[in-house]
């Protein structure tokens, strides 16, 4: 009997599978209220609030020139780390990753789709945060390619630790821990509060955080027009290698 169910098995080409998964993930992120709050509303609100009101001393120069790079770093953190950890943690908990494992989409394809999703959302965040900053009088300097490089390495570092958390902890624990880390890094990572406010010893430790390296690196380039901020880049690279290696080693799919 010939019906619609007459077997005709075969996988779609890999790029088409990755494209389908990416489109799906982006659509779902943009529909998710909590995710939008985290990735767009909070960064933009912080930018507008601290740029317009003299609530804290951010050093010499215009406030928005100090704030915009920090808020961009926060945006990268929120998408690559917090959002990805929570989203993937719940996908693991509800057997979504397990079920995807039974489709022709290989794990490498799923990871590619998740990475592409993160980059697309970051692009959207950059456009929105950048537009708001420009409206507030931001005048960026430096080589945009260096800023992109910093963002890419930072994304790799945050993704590694986000996936490590999602793939090892219970989904509820990931939710709590990812939000706590986000909050701590927001306050302690030189995003809107300059690290110069902290005492020397503490400051030299905080400077080694990935968020501090990304915020400082972006600031060196975009605020001060510096070349390649080598120290910040090295800090980010170490975090990226560490995070991705740990995630590859300890991630549990179910």
């Amino acid at each position: 009997m010939n019906t619609v169910f007459t077997p005709s098995p075969g996988a779609a080409p890999l790029p088409r599978m990755i494209g389908a998964q990416t489109a799906y993930e982006v659509r779902n992120l943009l529909r998710n209220g909590e995710q939008l709050l985290l990735t767009l509303i909070i960064p933009v609100a912080l930018l507008v609030l601290f740029a317009s009101a003299p609530l804290l001393d951010v050093g010499p120069g215009r406030r928005v020139d100090f704030l915009a790079p920090g808020v961009l770093a926060l945006a990268v953190l929120s998408t690559a780390f917090t959002g990805q950890a929570i989203g993937t943690g719940f996908e693991r908990r509800y057997g979504v990753l397990k079920r995807l494992g039974a489709t022709p989409l290989p794990r490498t394809g799923l990871i590619a789709a998740k990475s592409l999703t993160v980059l697309l959302v970051e692009l959207l965040q950059t456009v929105v945060v950048g537009a708001v900053a420009l409206a507030l009088g931001w005048s960026p300097h430096g080589d945009p390619a260096v800023a992109v490089l910093l963002v890419l390495v930072g994304t790799a570092a945050f993704s590694g630790f986000g996936l490590l958390m999602a793939g090892t902890l219970r989904a509820e624990a990931t939710l709590a821990a990812a939000n706590l880390v986000y909050l701590l890094l927001l306050v302690l990572g030189g995003v809107v509060f300059p690290l110069t406010k902290f005492s020397g010893g503490l400051r030299s430790v905080l400077e080694l955080l990935p968020i501090s390296a990304l915020a400082d690196g972006l600031r060196q380039v975009l605020q001060h027009g510096a070349g390649l901020p080598v120290r910040d880049l090295v800090v980010l690279l170490v975090w990226a290698v560490l995070g991705l290696a740990l995630a590859a080693r300890f991630f549990r799919w179910e």
Partner: peptide, 11 residues
């Protein structure tokens, strides 16, 4: 494959 747990993203 149809799993007992479904495996469909909740959203």
């Amino acid at each position: 494959v149809m799993l007992q747990s479904g495996g469909v993203p909740t959203g």
